[in-house]
Amino acid sequence: MKMSVIYLLIALLVPCFAKADTSFIGTIKTTKGDVTVVRSAGQTPGHVGDKLYPEDVLQTGTNSSTGILFEDNTVLSLGSDTEIIISDYVFAPEKGIFSMVINMIKGTASYLSGIIGKQSPETVEFHTPDATINIRGTQFLVKVEI
């Protein structure tokens, strides 16, 4: 009886771990100066090779920058004194489910479409505090002054 409960617990927990392990959505590929990743666990300096997850907040300091490669090959790079929130990101081509929602608080950024932007552009939303950008397979630059 006890064993079966343990097995049940393991069976319930394993998918969680598996999910936590595979649900990263992108990787930091370049950094210069101060780059910070803020998530529920707290804030950590961002290094090349670090994995990113949905709802992560990315910040750069003065004379700093960072470049991210998402799993669908979307390229997002940030200039100095910039802050963005990766509010939502889903890349599940096998199920045909895509979503990418970025909220930009301040600074400068460059966005280059990946597979999501090409296959499902209507699911990409890039928000600044005063507008929403909708894209059709393209590259654009944004600046938000506060």
Partner: peptide, 28 residues
């Protein structure tokens, strides 16, 4: 809070690395 105290944004459409220029809309 940030949007309440008046920010200003600029959006620029640029050619991608293959030289193609796409299309975008900016809505508020």
């Amino acid at each position: 809070a940030v949007s309440a105290c008046g920010t200003k944004s600029t959006v620029v459409l640029v050619p991608d690395p293959d030289g193609r220029t796409g299309k975008l809309t900016v809505t508020n």
